[in-house]
Each structure stands twice: as structure tokens, then as C-alpha cells.
Design a protein around this nucleic acid. Sequence first.
DNA 1: CAGTGGTCTAGACCACGTA
DNA 2: ACGTGGTCTAGACCACTGT
Lengths: 240, 240
Amino acid sequence: MSEPAIGLSPLYIQVRDELTRRLAKGRWRPGTSLPSEQGLAREMGVSQGTVRKALDGLAADHILVRKQGRGTFVAEFEESRILFQFFRLWPDSGERMFPTSKVLSRTTEKGSARERAALGLGLLSKIVRVERVRYHGRVPILREILSLPAGLFPGFNEVRQVPNNVYQFYSERWGIRITKTKEKLKAVAADTNDRRALGCAVGDPLLLIERLALDINTRPVEYRRSFCLTTHMHYASDVT
Amino acid sequence: MSEPAIGLSPLYIQVRDELTRRLAKGRWRPGTSLPSEQGLAREMGVSQGTVRKALDGLAADHILVRKQGRGTFVAEFEESRILFQFFRLWPDSGERMFPTSKVLSRTTEKGSARERAALGLGLLSKIVRVERVRYHGRVPILREILSLPAGLFPGFNEVRQVPNNVYQFYSERWGIRITKTKEKLKAVAADTNDRRALGCAVGDPLLLIERLALDINTRPVEYRRSFCLTTHMHYASDVT
DNA sequence: CAGTGGTCTAGACCACGTA
DNA sequence: ACGTGGTCTAGACCACTGT
């Protein structure tokens, strides 16, 4: 790290990548603090400013959280963060809240072509599939199907109950931390499954959110299709 | 700017705000370059690093564009930028392209309650309204209604033709530059207007995108409702 | 070549949180 | 009082662009 290293990426990128590797290996647990900027700078043989730029980048991606006077921490998956960062549905009026869930079914099977394509898996791969309905207060707002590569989540279907906050669950149980999602939205007509789960009529317009969630190594680890009733909710997206 | 200024915001924020004021006043036209970092630093009596941090912030917001070896430029509204920054609809397969438009109607009237609320206008305000259909190649993909505060766009409806790229139009004709948008999405059922414009059936599910566009002073300047056929297109949203 | 933004360093001081 | 991150400065060198 103290060589001139002609032609390589900038130092602060190398530092960021090194920190990312350590985080991916679980060197520091979510909620704990990293060494100070000065400490990391000494250890890596670079200036504090270079470490700072690397840490700022990771904080911008919500992988780290900076707290003035306290230190730099590994981000956790509390409901407030999930609601802020990943959950984009808002009630048209009234209070925002973390949606509750009721699991309808859980299976482990050979994945469909769609699931394999989304998750980048081979023909033989098993998939863990969870179907659930989510509620805003007492009102059902969406039905969703989660698809996970069974190989990454050993023992998933031996777990008694799937918690409501699954990203926290992935992190605490398997050390898999979601850092990015890519979503594709379409309007579709409700089918009989939607009618049963949501109480709408067949043919009613639903917002389909197709989400691929990536871990810290940008590896796809969850594929999710949410069918949302948007009579009293909307999906918010701010562009800057 | 050389005073200690206890209790005020950080220097680089003050510099950013001063640059924003100058940009809002049209001190530099889109496409032209600002003075160099050193020049601005000398003029404002701060260090180059402080100016750099201010410029980096404006570049992150796509208000400025940095070009190594050339300078810092005021962002323009070429189609490629609009497509990249503001247009979130992608074809499910095939090539991406800037959608073409056919204007269906143009009026200037008293705004509806919905429009007034969205744009923050009073009861007496006039609204310019444009309805158009947009195409991906030859395929109609959406019908949309643009609503503008007539007071901000004098002479709008005397213009012969509304160009396809309206954000460029707003910028060149009235100096109003869109920098941010907030969108709310819902799934709705097509009505007879949609059937006529898009050739779908009444009741077909459509993606409604309700967009509020803000200028550099975060003042709302355009309200837009787009009804999109998502049989061969989807809305993309990446979260990080 | 000169001029621009991009990286890197070193050091000072401030604001905040904890003890 | 101390340690943390946040701001600000000054100066060096690199990478890129145009003449």
C-alpha cells in the first residue's frame, strides 16, 4: 500500500476495496465500530484524508454509518433503516409504518426459469420460496413471493418462523447483508391468488414490484415479486 | 466570506449556496464553463479545497459537470442526459431510445384543485396544460398531461410547436432548469381517453406516474401525470 | 507547453459525545 | 479532559486536454 503503484486505481479506491473485503468477511459485526481514521491510516500506511475519502464512500452507500464524536459503525438492519432505505411504499395520507406480515406458504423446490435467470443460477439449483401478505395496520397492501438460492441460506426452512424483517434475519443468521436493490415496476391485473390474499377483484390493477437484492459483493441473493394494491398507497421515487 | 462566522453553516456550504444563487440568476449559461477552482477560491477568499467540495456537491446533483483537463461546466439538457437522469421507463427487451411525442391538446385555464395543490398555487392561478402521447419507435407507450404555472412560462401557448424535449425547452426559452423530480406511482385502470390514445382496452392496468419537477431553487415548476402501458416496458428504480 | 480538475499529504482547529 | 469525526488550509504531484 506504500508503493507508487503506477497505473492502478487511486489509493482511496484501493482502501475502500480493502475495507469492503474485510466487511464482507465479517471482520466487524453490524453495530460495532471500526478503528478510528487515524488508526486505519497508520495501519495501511496512507494519510488520514485518504482513509476518510474511502469511509465517506462506504457511508454514502449506507454500508457504514458515521457518528461525529463516537466513531464509524457497521450499518444494521433496524426497521427504521429498512423503511427509509428499501421500502418505497407510502400511504396516500396518514402515518407511515413498518408493514406486518403473514406467511402463506414456504417451500424448497427446483427454481422456475424466471427465478434462475434473476438469481443467475444453474438448472439444478434449489430455491427457497416464501409467500406472504403484508399489512399496513389492518389493511392488506401486498402479496409477495421471496425466492432465495437455497445454497446461500442453509436450514432456512427448518426455522420455526420467518421474521417480518427478513433483511435483518439474513444478516444475523447467515451474515448476508443486503446493500443494494434493483427494482422493475409494472401494472398488472389481479388474479385469483391476489383476490384471495388481498380481497380485491380479479382484474383489478396491481403494482408489480420485481426486486433483485444484492449483497456487499453485488451478488444477487434475493428475488422478490410484490403485488401491491395502490388504492391507498403509492410508490415514491425521488430523482436528483 | 473571510470572517470566522461562528455558528453559521460550514464554509463549503456557504460557497455552494453562493454558486447556486449565481447559477439561478443565470450568471453562467448551460454548456459554458465556470471559472477554475483556483479562480473561484481567490475571488471568494477561501482555499481551493473548500471550493472543490462545493463544486463536487453541485456535480453530484447533476447541476454541474466536471471534465478533467477542461473545466467545470453548467449541465445541459441533451436527450442523452434526460434519458439517463429523468426517464425511468425501459423496454423489457431491445434498445433504449428517447421517446417521440404527439401533442393531442394544449390549453390555458384555471387549474384544477389537484394541479393547484401539487404546484402550490392560489385559487386564481392560470395553468398551461399539454396532453400528449409518447412512442417507443412506433409503439404508443404512454399518455401524459403536463401542467405548468402559466405565470412562469409567459407566451407558452403562442409557441408554434411544443418540442419533444420539454426540459431543454424550459431551459432555453425561460431559463427554468429542472434539477430534481419527485414521483409517485400507482396502478390504475385505463379509461376511454387511454383507450383512444394508446389503443388498449378500458380497464386494462396502467402504470400512473405522478411527477413533480423542481427547479434549482426547489420551486415546483411542472406537474405531470403519465399513464403508461407496461406490457413491453417497465419502470426501473435502483436503490443504494 | 500551460491550464484544468483529480489525488494525496500534513497539520490545525472545531463540534460532538463520553467519561 | 480526551478521542472521535468534520472542516479548512496549503502545497505537491498526477492525468488529461488543448495549443
